[in-house]
Amino acid sequence: MIAKIHITFKDGVLDPQGKAVHHTLIDLGYNEVSEIQMGKYLELKMDGVSREEAENRVTEMCEKLFANTVIESYRFTLETAK
C-alpha cells in the first residue's frame, strides 16, 4: 500500500513562504493566481496492511507526528503498490 500525504497550513495561519512565492508569480505576470498554499508531501510504502488498516494507521501517524494540528491540516490517498 502506498500512502500519499499532503500537509498544509490551516486557514488563518500565516504562510510567509507561500506569500513570497505568490509575490514572485505576480511579478512574473501570472496575475490569475489569487492564492498559494505551500506545504509538505510525504509518500509512504506500507507492507502487509489492508486498506482499512492503512487508513487508520496513516491517520494516527499524521495526528501524532506528520502534522501539528494546531497549525496544519492533512489529507492523504491510498494506492495499491504496483
Partner: peptide
C-alpha cells in the same frame, strides 16, 4: 514544549521569512 503539548500553541516561520 509546544510540540510535546506541555504548552499551548505552535511556533512557525518568522513572518519576514
Amino acid at each position: 514544549l509546544v510540540e510535546s503539548g506541555l504548552l499551548p500553541g505552535a511556533l512557525i516561520q518568522n513572518h519576514t521569512q
